Structures are given as structure tokens and as C-alpha cells.
Computed example of a mutant assay.
Amino acid sequence: MSSNQENPPLQHATLDKFVEDFIAVVWERPTDGSQTLTWCPRWWCHDEAVFRLTALWTAWEHMRVHDGPTAMATWLTRYADPIMSVVLDAEAGPFRGCKSDRGHKHLRPHKNAALPCEPAPAGLFDRMNDDADDEGLAQLQHATLDKFVEDFIAVVWERPTDGSQTLTWCPRWWCHDEAVFRLTALWTAWEHMRVHDGPTAMAAWLVEYADPIMSVVLDAEAGPFRGCKSDRGHKHLRPHKNAALPCEPAPAGLFDERT
């Protein structure tokens, strides 16, 4: 079989062609004046939108060739609809403040176009790589958790958290055990999936892991940063003594170690 037969030409040669000729046509929503839906004609100015639309493009080009007659339906329900619901969300999506009829809003929610992050204490996350060999470390896109958060998460999930009643972020995210655990989960999943899961990796990571986990991380009422503010900083007072839910010791022998 020739290489051309093995790798048929892309239906949409570039991301902008995919968006202009496909996404913008199929998802033509009544965004002008809507309180719930919006779109930015300069979608390419928004890092999160570019990431999400790239995920849809790469998944589409792979699935339409390799996944048979159910490819369209699977792509829609598994990836496109969940991701596009975020892209077009006027309140919590990447185009908040932009309007399809009035154009791009140049003012970003945060300075440097990213959620604010204070540097983590030196060496705090180095131990996470102690068990990895040199070859494994060389393959990482983000060598440490703090780099993953600062260079990727804080940019892609740049939400309007200042003054929000529903969203919040802590510049000292590394002070919160739950946030560290959740962000580590996203980091390890991303580094594995982008190498091993093929062209659908970005879309699958977003839908299956990133969006559900980040919705908890950024939840101002029930998430790990409750009381913290992206513009006012870290709240040192924790909800409970010893920074944990209170637990009384269980009766002796009730939970003997499993063998």
C-alpha cells in the first residue's frame, strides 16, 4: 500500500480552514445579543479556543478515516458537543466579553493573559521525578507540575476569576493539597495520553479528565480555593484544624489490614 493510501489528505488542511469551513458553518448559533452563547471572530486570539478547536480538528481528521460509519456520530457526542459547549459559553468560556457582532474584546481577564501564579518553593515538586529515568523525563512536555500549571493550565484556563461569585483561583495553588492532587492527575494523564493515545488524545483528555476536574478546581463555593482570590491572594485560614476533615480513631480491629 502506498503512503498516500495509508495517509489520505486532510479534509481541512489547516486549523483556520477547519474552523472557517466546518465549525463556523455547522455550529452557526444565534450568538448576536445572546446572554448564554457567544463567539469571537478573532477566535485565534484565545489560547483556550485554539487548544480546544485543535483537539476537535485532530480528532475529526483521524476518526473520519479510521472509525468507520459511526465516526461522525461518535465524534459529535464524545468530543465535539462537550467541547463546543465550553467554547460557546458566554459566561464561562474563552470568548467571555467578545461578541460575534461587535468583535474581539482586547482586554484580557488577567495580566499576562494567564491565571496569576506565585512561584512554588524551590524543589517542592522535584521529588515527583525521582523515580523517572532520564529518557522518561526527556519526553515530558512539562518537566514539573509547577511548569505544567504555570505554562499550560494557567494559560488555557484563563477565566475571569477576579470578583467572580462562581469562579476562583489561588496564586499559591501549591498550598492546597486537593489542588495539587487534582492538577497532578491532569499532568500525568496529559503527558501519557499525548504520547500514547494518538490523534484523539487532546479531545479525550479535555472531555474525560480536564473539564470535569477543572470545574471542581475553579469552583468558588465548593472547590479547594474557597476563600482565596486570584487578585487578593491566598487565604491562610483553613476550614479545619490540621488542614483536614476531623476524624476520630476507628475502634481497634475494625479495619484490620488486608492480606
Rank of each mutant, 00 (worst) to 15 (best):
M193T: 04
M193W: 12
H234D: 00
L186C: 13
Q141H: 14
P199T: 04
C170Y: 04
P121T: 01
P9C: 01
P160V: 09
C247N: 10
R194S: 03
F22W: 12
E28Y: 06
F148Y: 15
S164R: 14
A250D: 07
P199S: 10
Y79R: 00
G233Q: 05
D89Q: 04
Q165T: 06
W27R: 10
A113D: 15
D47T: 13
Q139R: 15
G253Y: 02
Y209W: 07
W205A: 03
A210F: 07
W60S: 06
R96T: 13
P239S: 12
R258G: 10
A143M: 09
E158A: 08
V216D: 14
G33H: 02
K99C: 13
A90M: 03
P224E: 09
P116Y: 03
R182W: 09
P116F: 04
S100A: 11
A113R: 14
V19A: 00
A55D: 00
T38H: 01
P9L: 07
N4G: 08
A132Y: 12
F18Y: 14
D67A: 14
P30K: 03
L254I: 09
M202Q: 06
D32S: 11
P119V: 04
A90H: 07
L124C: 04
S230K: 08
C228A: 03
H62V: 00
A24Q: 12
E6Y: 06
A138Q: 14
P119S: 10
A114R: 15
R258S: 12
P121K: 06
C228P: 01
A59M: 08
M193R: 13
W190G: 01
R172L: 08
R159M: 14
D162S: 14
C117D: 05
G33Y: 04
I23D: 00
L245A: 12
V19C: 02
P119L: 08
D211R: 01
E178L: 11
T77W: 04
Q139E: 12
A204M: 10
G123A: 09
F225Y: 11
E158I: 01
D81L: 14
W44C: 02
A49H: 01
C40L: 05
V26T: 11
L206T: 03
E191F: 08
N7V: 07
L56G: 00
Q139K: 15
A13M: 08
A243T: 12
V155D: 01
G97D: 03
Q5G: 05
P212G: 05
K235L: 13
V207C: 03
R64T: 09
E135V: 14
H236D: 12
V155A: 03
I213R: 04
G163L: 08
A13I: 11
A132N: 04
A210S: 13
L107K: 14
R238E: 13
W190C: 02
G223T: 07
A113T: 09
R78L: 12
C98F: 00
K229C: 11
W43D: 00
V156I: 15
E135S: 11
D231F: 04
R238D: 09
Q139G: 10
G123Q: 08
F148N: 07
W173R: 03
V216S: 09
E28W: 02
A24Y: 00
D32C: 15
